[in-house]
Simulated assay, not measured.
Amino acid sequence: MNKVAVGVNGYGVIGKRVADAILMQPDMELVGVADIATDWRIASVANRLPIFAATEDARLAMTVAGLRPRGTLDELVELSDIIIDTTPKHVAAGNLERYRTAGVKAVFQGGESHATTGHSFVAQANYDSALGRDTTRVVSCNTTSIVRVLGALDTAGLLLRARGVLIRRATDPWESHLGGIMNTMVPEPSIPSHQGPDAQTVLPGLDLVTIAAKGAHTQTHNHYWTIQLTRPATRDEVIAALRAAPRIAFIRISDGLVALNSTIELMRDLGRPRGDMWEVAVWEDLVTVQGDEVFLTYQVYNEAIVIPETIDAIRALTKLAPDAASSMAITDSTLGMRKDFLSAQLP
């Protein structure tokens, strides 16, 4: 099998997870990762992965630190068919012309604007429109969850409009010593918050409004949705629509999964790498239907949810798989994704 050569620029929270996922794919080869760090973040994988320096200064610093980089970012780009750019917000957009000049395809993350690539991506929603493109942008963790859940109801013909409240984590856990908030909650300064309009870049027909606030915790986001349906429906119909969709898994308070931290602990007990949860975790026993309204809440693991979408974006841009179902089947199988964490029900 001819494998697509993939380079990862940025070896942080998302980049390291993308790199590990690429190594699990039968149709992809990880040719290297680039970064500017010289500390534990890159030193911990220097003997396992080919590392490259994102800048000339970084190359010199890596050499002094004894990390022996294989080359520079430009050399990584030359070796790659496609680059996954997971560098910090706004840095990635500055790399776009470099990739275009080199004739290399590129996948960006949700920190960049839709205008950067002119295309935003969630595999189940718009894989076909990404086929063969030079660039796309995998939307943010919260936006990915919105498209998955509301898209499931839309596909079932049940969604009329949705209004959501998002309680966001303050910062990534490994950066909690640098900032974050304590004993307070910080509202986002505008309504709608940015996640709703962002979801509409993927599914333009969605009628939704999002309101968000930042909470004093570091692990995962929590969403609450009030959804008006196209008609009165039963709870079983709503559950069936969610269960039929990919990358949504059910959790239950009756199983003791009563809070965000308990779900993360479950992921560790299941042996997930880094305790990651790639699925949207919907509390099944809290799904409530009253006539043509649905009320539900779910959990979003911000560090991991976009990883399968990024893998599928690689296949879409390089035409490794002809459609979303084909690509997602490979991705979900290699990662071991589930529809229910406490049963034998697999994707």
Rank of each mutant, 00 (worst) to 15 (best):
M1Q: 14
N2H: 06
K3R: 15
G7I: 11
K16T: 10
A19Y: 09
D20N: 03
M28C: 02
E29N: 08
V31Q: 12
V31E: 10
G32I: 07
D35S: 04
I36D: 07
T38K: 06
V45S: 02
V45Y: 03
I51E: 04
A53V: 05
R59E: 08
T63F: 11
T63D: 07
T63C: 06
A65D: 07
G66Q: 00
R68A: 04
T72L: 10
L76M: 07
L79R: 13
I83H: 09
I84G: 00
T86M: 01
T86E: 03
A93C: 07
G94Y: 05
N95F: 13
L96R: 15
R98L: 14
Y99M: 03
T101G: 08
G103N: 05
Q109P: 08
T117K: 00
G118Y: 06
H119W: 11
S120P: 06
S120E: 02
F121W: 01
A125E: 00
A130T: 02
G132W: 14
R133M: 07
T136A: 04
T136C: 12
S140N: 00
C141G: 15
N142E: 15
T144N: 14
A156I: 03
A156P: 13
G157A: 05
L160P: 15
V165W: 12
R168P: 09
R169A: 11
A170N: 05
P173G: 04
W174L: 15
E175F: 13
S176P: 05
S176E: 13
G180H: 00
I181K: 00
M182W: 12
N183I: 07
T184I: 02
P187W: 03
I191T: 06
P192R: 13
S193V: 02
S193L: 01
A199I: 03
Q200H: 01
Q200K: 05
L208G: 08
V209W: 09
A216N: 06
A216D: 07
T220E: 13
T220Y: 11
H221R: 01
Q228T: 08
T230S: 14
D236N: 03
V238T: 03
I239L: 14
A241E: 11
A249G: 11
A249M: 09
R252N: 05
R252A: 09
A259H: 15
S262Q: 10
S262F: 09
L266Y: 06
R272T: 09
P273L: 10
V280R: 01
V282Y: 02
E284W: 04
D292M: 00
N302E: 11
A304N: 12
A304L: 14
A304M: 10
D312M: 15
R315F: 02
D323V: 00
A324G: 08
F341T: 04
A344G: 12
